[in-house]
């Protein structure tokens, strides 16, 4: 199992690095899917099979597909890739990378500075997750439902292509 976890982790990190350095959006998304899949394996290793399934279905499936649809709708040309290449310069990467790696160093330092207590990890199956979802976390579920609802309404409202509205006095002048 350990080996599986390490391999999956490596794949996840590598795939993510590839995803964030691609110039082409579709390529990036494909690497992202790989990253999500490997993280699903990590979940499985961690004893969370239900969530691993959700990761594949929702993240790798639904969300990425949604993004791909949008990219298709935007109908991006070759120039956009060139544009990405121009934007992706070494100078731009340096500062944020240093800052972020400082942050990472601190996170790892925090993780390492706590001694690990030997507790056996056991699998938490879908049933117990379902029980706590509809038990103590029922309010959270309701709120999630509301959030999804507002997401749907917001997406519909924002995504509608509106006619350009001009003021009625200006209308006469332009026509």
């Amino acid at each position: 199992m350990n080996i599986t976890f390490i391999i999956a982790s490596f794949v996840a990190v590598l795939a993510t690095i590839m995803a964030i350095t691609r110039y082409n959006l579709i390529h990036a998304l494909l690497y992202l899917v790989i990253s999500f899949l490997s993280i699903a394996i990590v979940f499985f290793v961690l004893g969370a099979p239900f969530v691993a399934a959700l990761e594949i279905i929702v993240y790798a499936g639904a969300i990425v597909v949604l993004i791909i649809f949008v990219i298709m709708m935007l109908n991006l040309k070759e120039e956009s890739v060139e544009q990405e290449r121009i934007w992706f310069s070494r100078k731009v990467i340096l500062g944020p990378s240093i800052l972020s790696i400082v942050l990472l160093g601190e996170l790892i330092y925090i993780l390492l500075s706590h001694e690990t207590t030997a507790l056996t990890t056991q699998a938490v199956d879908a049933k117990s997750v379902g029980l706590s979802l509809y038990g103590p976390y029922i309010i959270g579920v309701e709120l999630s439902g509301l959030l999804l609802m507002s997401g749907v309404v917001g997406a519909y409202h924002l995504g509608r292509q509106k006619k350009k509205v001009q003021h009625r006095f200006l209308e006469n002048q332009t026509t």
Partner: peptide, 9 residues
């Protein structure tokens, strides 16, 4: 975002 990150750091 840079500001947020710097603040977090």
């Amino acid at each position: 975002i840079m500001g947020i990150v710097a603040g977090a750091v």
